[in-house]
Design a protein around this nucleic acid. Structure first.
Ligand SMILES: [Mn+2]
Ligand SMILES: [Mn+2]
Ligand SMILES: [Zn+2]
Ligand SMILES: [Zn+2]
Lengths: 138, 138
DNA sequence: TAATTAATTTATAATGATTCTAAAGTAGTG
DNA sequence: CACTACTTTAGAATCATTATAAATTAATTA
């Protein structure tokens, strides 16, 4: 199955028709081997500078939000300044380089087992997320 | 030293004159024994409903941001929907109850030692923050 | 104390990210 | 082609936050 077919599958599974705009967005998001962490603004800039015809912001927002709802993307909370999305939807953690604003994935197994010693009656743990803030060590 | 004196100290140390508006904000923030996690909107509502005369939003934003810069408050990233501030400026972690949107402090010692197994050359770790998402277990 | 200067508060305007809307365009079906 | 449904898009609306500038209050000086 070609990449394009995979994109078409994802779009259909999300209830979206495979238009050229949406396929261009899929290429950007899913045609890469490493995780992609991005803001809507990033995406818009990349799409503006790629040869393809311009895609409206509304379409970008809509598509990203549908993918998020479907589970093909997740939104991550790194800081209060920007809203980031993540193409890695498995459970994992992050390095955030405060010198460069770069986000790097940390595999679940890169973080030793975390033991939460406080229990809250009537509540259960859904997920544990670790954010490791780093900086250039000069 | 009275509470009010402490507020006046904090304000002065932050380069702000102790006006009645700012002292009212300080009371809300610092005159409590437990951590207070809040949004600007929370604060504004509480101040509106308290007997004191109305305080403008601009003053609230200004004061909170100066306290944040001074280190008397910190801003925490829980999700992308709201921006929260925290009166607990020590290093600590959080439970976030997704059923109620409630934020609860986890002492540093409530979380077992975290071992980050991935090293990034040229970078050093500043802080490690854990966010434990919980839900009502019914 | 009165006059002068500096800081503060406030209402309101500006900004910027996100969402909404409604008109024009495109695709699928027969 | 005719018909219908879905999509894209520009621009408007919304909402949180920040900026502005006039009016108020506080501090300092005479
Ligand atoms: Mn969003
Ligand atoms: Mn802020
Ligand atoms: Zn990631
Ligand atoms: Zn806290």
């Amino acid at each position: 199955m070609s990449n394009k077919d995979i994109f078409i599958e994802k779009l259909k599974a999300s209830g979206l028709r495979p238009t050229k705009q949406r396929i261009a967005i899929c290429k950007l998001l899913f045609q890469r081997k490493d995780t992609f962490h991005f803001t809507i603004n990033n995406l818009n800039n990349i799409l503006k500078n790629s040869s393809v015809e311009k895609i409206s912001l509304a379409t970008i927002y809509n598509t990203i939000h549908v993918f998020k709802k479907k589970g093909y993307l997740k939104e991550i909370s790194i800081n209060s300044y920007k809203s980031y999305f993540d193409t890695n939807v498995t459970h994992h953690h992050h390095f955030f380089n405060e010198s460069t604003n770069e986000i790097i994935d940390l595999k679940d197994s890169d973080v030793g087992k975390i033991k939460i010693k406080k229990v809250i009656p009537g509540k259960k743990i859904k997920t544990i997320e670790v954010l490791v803030k780093i900086e250039n060590s000069n």
